[in-house]
Amino acid sequence: MTTVSMRGLTKRYGGTTAIADLTARIGVGVTGFLGPNGAGKTTLLRCLATALAPDSGRLVAYGLDTAVAAERTALRRRLGYLPQDPGLYPNFKTAELLDYVAVLKELTDTGRRRAEVRRVLAEVGLTDRATVRVRKLSGGMRQRLALAQALLGDPELLILDEPTVGLDPEQRMLFRALVSRLGHTRTVLLSTHQTEDVGALCERVLVMRAGGIVFDGTPGELAAQAEGRVWVSAEPPSDAHVYWRNADGRYRTLGPRPIGGEPGLLSIEDGYLTLLGAEAAAAGSGDAERVS
């Protein structure tokens, strides 16, 4: 069932087109957005979250047109949004901050509000930090608190812009468990640079480049884009997008078959890099020994 629909969505910043004529339909479940920096992911999520008005096109979520003020407000009552840079009031205590945001989310009944604050604190594993001031929380805890404020009110549409930044591996596992659970009944839109998160969570992945969608499919289909381009060899290749030396001393190559190369296991990252070519390779090759 389609819950979010966009048609001809365009957003420009001065002379720069951030998203260009986007058309897509999204349903219940976890949908991931991948793309290099500047691809338009955050702009798209801001438009979907009603933080930004598109210059043209139509955006409808849960039957509510975001161009209509009353419908936009109605949508905001069903929305949870974790922005890329979530601002948190440092002098508030953790539970106090959530209570304040809950008031802004129109949870007016005090008893229900307190129960909701307890629920989301438990969801993100911050129950024991309820009375600690935000400025004393670690970066990972702040990120979980930001996620908690997005979860307040049990929203039907959850928009998460790089939610796993700053989380340690254990926290990321907890995050995955939480989001995958939510994805059974809710629409979760997730923008990330962590391809492992996409593989672990998303039924569907949209890859963006230069404001447009260049891939729309499952994580498996994205990984399959690198079919015939992932190799493992004893010697480094002469021409490849990306290669690196594994811990076992062999070289993993993305590109043409090197001499003596054997097919390697495909990953989402391989598909993503193959799809976006040299541009993505350059942007995502921090660990690579060489980028051609």
């Binding site: 009603t50 905001r76 949004y81 945001v101 989310k105 129109e106």
Partner: peptide, 18 residues
Amino acid sequence: SRDHRHGAAEGSSVLPAS
């Protein structure tokens, strides 16, 4: 000025409270 000072304006702008 709480939202502006702490960079929370974007998150707050999508809450139902106008």
